[in-house]
Nucleic acid binder design. Structure first.
Lengths: 255, 255
DNA sequence: TGTCAACATGATGTATACATATTGTCTTTT
DNA sequence: AAAAGACAATATGTATACATCATGTTGACA
């Protein structure tokens, strides 16, 4: 033990990549909560590898903004504050508005348009499912499907405007929001319809080469999304502050 | 030798930071040219440290886009292509336009305005110096001062719009352009005046809260800059292709 | 009982040894 | 002489040992 486990079924190529995927998954799943310290040694033991690949994975996660490091002390999972959420959405707004304007000026390939429309329609399908199920809101697994469809829609917009660097920045931004955004409540049918309508309107404006309309629509879409996130954040923050104050009152002085 | 050199005059804190600064400087100075392979071992010997801090510095530079890595092969200094330059400027345009629009909507503190104006005026001062010197174009050292003043101007715009993340992305982008942008010829008096006028107009528009005018001006400013870079790039590319073809004709078949 | 120094502990930073993969070269073979 | 294969050189990937720093605990002393 200790040596390399020969060459069994190594899903991902390098240990570093495996470590990266593992840690990111732990963070995304909420297993590693914000403000939690992550130790190289502990992770190394968990994954049965040395500190080196762990260390490199952590460095990458720091570069991507998921972790924070204080020299000679420790590595913490970041805790997004209200202002961070605002800044991330502003960054997205700046880039997606630019992409929409550019896309609206470009000739649009029918195949691209078709795929784009498809991503928007998936949301309607979710709504239909929801109504048939008789429930009022989407379950967690369905919310995940929604997130995927939503991501695909926005990614398609970026792909049309063919700028790999912008796509990368937006994706990094979305990753941060997705991981650290507070749990949203499951959407109801009206919300889904609303989002689909916004997406459809954006597609139509871009297809019609109406630059100003597309700008207006995508701006409003993103700002609505921001408002929703902030609302979830405020609810969460209120809960946290309650949890912090109640035990201090009812708990025994010491133990 | 081999052990750590106790604790002499270590300018930067960690070896990793020293390595990072060293490598970046070598790249920025043109010492390490694009497409050049950089070896961990060689750098480690040059800096009299082990491969570990070098490796971490290289990883960071890869994350920032200055280096490219191919697994199990080597690490190369990137070579920006024409499309890369376009994409980088588009990214800047998206973000700076957003920043300008936001800044134009915000109340502007007089002290900020004053500093901003100051950065713009430094360019005029360079022009005055140039005219007094009797030369036609700026020397290399003066071009460096120009670059600093220009950077300060744009940074100020970003600072006013108070979004740390956007500032970071723009700065990373500018770093790439500055390092890998082909050498620009020294500016002449007219060019300096022109740039100053554009900066001054942008300040005025933002100060007057004229969102649309500010948008138009900053857009044009950045696109002009892009055109200039592309022109320099095309000249450089033509030279390179000449240098590649001439020796092949006149050089002896082998040696 | 309060304070402070010594120290145990566990973190990161760095050095180094070893494993493995790739490439160019040199030899061998045809 | 050309092609193929062995092999040296060198690259990165990983493991591990050691150094250093920060912190919380313990225990002696005022």
């Amino acid at each position: 033990m200790g040596r390399r486990q020969s060459s069994a079924l190594n899903a991902a190529g390098s240990l570093r990549d495996r470590a990266y995927a593992y840690i990111q998954r732990r963070i995304a799943s909420g297993d590693l909560k914000p403000e939690t310290a992550v130790s190289e040694l502990v992770l190394a033991k968990e994954l049965n590898m040395s500190r080196t690949p762990i260390r490199e994975a952590l460095n990458q996660l720091v570069a991507e903004g998921l972790l924070e490091q204080t020299p000679n002390r420790g590595t913490l999972v970041v805790q997004l504050k209200r202002q961070d959420i605002i800044e991330l959405y502003e960054l997205r707004e700046a880039l997606e508005v630019y992409a929409a304007r550019k896309a609206a000026r470009l000739p649009l390939r029918p195949s691209d348009l078709e795929r784009w429309q498809h991503f928007a329609d998936e949301i309607v399908q979710l709504k239909t499912e929801l109504e048939k199920s008789g429930k009022r809101t989407l379950r967690s697994e369905q919310m995940h499907r929604f997130a995927t469809a939503d991501l695909s829609f926005h990614n398609m917009l970026m792909r049309i405007s063919v700028n790999a660097r912008i796509v990368k920045v937006v994706n990094d931004t979305r990753l941060l929001i997705r991981i650290f955004g507070m749990e949203r409540p499951g959407y109801d049918a009206d919300t889904l319809q609303n989002i689909h309508d916004q997406h459809a309107a954006i597609i139509a404006a871009v297809a019609a080469h109406d630059v100003e309309l597309a700008t207006q629509l995508i701006t409003r879409h993103i700002r609505t999304s921001l408002e929703e996130r902030l609302q979830a954040y405020d609810v969460w923050e209120r809960e946290v502050s309650l949890q912090k104050s109640i035990p201090a009152i009812f708990a025994p002085p010491h133990d």
